[in-house]
Write a protein that binds this DNA or RNA. Sequence first.
RNA 1: GGGCGUGUAGCAUAGCCUGGAUAAUGCACUGGCCUCCUAAGCCAGGGACCGCGGGUUCGAAUCCUGCCGCGCCCGCCA
Length: 580
Amino acid sequence: MRDLIEVCAPLILDSISELEISKEDMSNLIGPSTVGSMADIAIPCHSLSRILKKSPVEVSEHISGLISPSLQGLALTSSMNGFVNLKADPEWLASKTMGLLSDNMLGVKKDSPRKIIVDYSAPNVAKEMHVGHLRSTVIGDAIVRMLRFKGHEVIRENHIGDWGTPFGMLIEHLIDLGENSFTSDKAISDFDQFYKEARVKFNHDDLFAERARSRVVLLQAEDSDTLRLWKVLVDVSTAYFNEVYEMLDVLLDDDDIMGESAYRHLLPTVVERLRESGMLEESEGASVVYLGGKWVNREGAPFPVIIRKGDGGYNYSTSDLACIIDRVERISCDELMYVVGTPQKQHFEMVFEVASRAGFMDERHTATHINFGSVLDSNGKMLKSRAGQSAKLVDLLKESIIRADSAISEKNPELTGEDKARISKMIGIGAVKYADLSTDRSKDYIFDWDKMLSFEGNTAPYLQYSHARISRIFSLSPVSRESLRNSNIQLSTVEEEVLAKCIVNFAESLDKSIYSSHPHKLCTHIHATSSAFATFYEACPILKSEDDQIMISRLALCDLTARVISTGLDLLGIMSPEMM
RNA sequence: GGGCGUGUAGCAUAGCCUGGAUAAUGCACUGGCCUCCUAAGCCAGGGACCGCGGGUUCGAAUCCUGCCGCGCCCGCCA
């Protein structure tokens, strides 16, 4: 209801000018009501009580009387318990709602465009994708979509793990198995097996371990044969990632891949620049940066960011610093966003601090760690891929689609064939994504198979169902959706009013969601909208309404509701089926 | 030891940034609603010392502080 506050606030301030209250004090008190059913805007008058030497109840009654005339046609004024309550006038609400009928943005205003890099997903080459990767991929994708909608230039970067010491053992294992065995389709489905075998050999076979270490040296020297083998691993892996991305319906593709290997030539530059700036120190053979301040270790000694290891190899931090240089200087972005788990919070704080101090980025750039909680099992324990328990992402997605399919069979037997397959996918994938997006990303996430795939409550299928119901109405309607763009909306029932408010509030909710990078805020709003629609749907006949005026008005509300849901879901990366 | 985070009905969550009224939502539970636009739905109801104690305030789930529980991070993994 920020629009209503915006129009009402100046009028309220004018009407109370005779009182001994500063405009600033008053402005601060005007805010959204916390009791939705009572009002849209509330002014708590308790703090004014002392200034005006009257009880809060008297103050609120007095102010209510003063401002009421000037808010004619905007809001209905009342007072209770020392609060002035303003309720949107149905006329104002109706005209506001009508204004959105011809607005493809549903009231959302574009920001002045910035160039934003969103770093997300980041699976590892020659490793299976697990549920852990799901969070980064799904959250990052939603953020990309929302930022684009707000008018920004968004560049996706998939920082895949395609470089580093593990590749010595992986390549040697590939040699042992024979290249061809790996490039066959069968092998693609068995990355975990491949990785584990390599790891076991590395740990227990000294000869193999030695080969692996030599191979790393060759890789870093860019020996052509080694690079070719490395490329086999990368290509097979990225093909597999793409398969998962396509299934997940996320925007990532080959063009977005900027793996660690892409920055390897920049690593010496990082060291040079840090050395030039005088930040680099030597410690036990390694090149490090001490940030000081709160960065101390267990013993209270300063603890460093390792830039170059004692063996000459580079570290994770170095790669991230190179990454910043590349993004700032080559791409010249304004913002850098990293959709990476909370455990790496400290790492990013330190890397950002090093980058700022070294001048890799300055006050024109903002770097943000979009952190997210760990995936826990139903016992509240970390879901670790090493435990071998966590399901492969593809299997999970397949399972979800199968469950959606059987739900459709039960609920709507008329839906068959290709339609059914298409919609099962929308629902199954949507359920998995929404389960992840609908809770505060910064908290840990309890991975509950049954809950995720249940189609009741605050879930994607519920929202999709609302959308399908509306689509159904239009398929039976004599009036097309396009023809409703200039129609008149009248809000004659409470249910219509509540629904209209949800529609009008969409832009505000989306803004809150994107400015905080918290997709769950948008989820909460779409769910509230769907819920308001369900109530409206039960209470208000649409195609069977008493006259054509009302039917048109209600159809217009349906159209807007469907657009709020489908636009909202689309921004979350979830499809809106027209039937289910 | 230091740092960061977290604790809200049986379960899962929102609200906390920016303090306001009877703490919101879903699952589960109880009772109603399909000759009528999709019941994957709706309506009604029960269920919460908002981890515990102090403090600030007219007013605290929200801000400050102490404690307790849980989790993560703390030099050559990413």
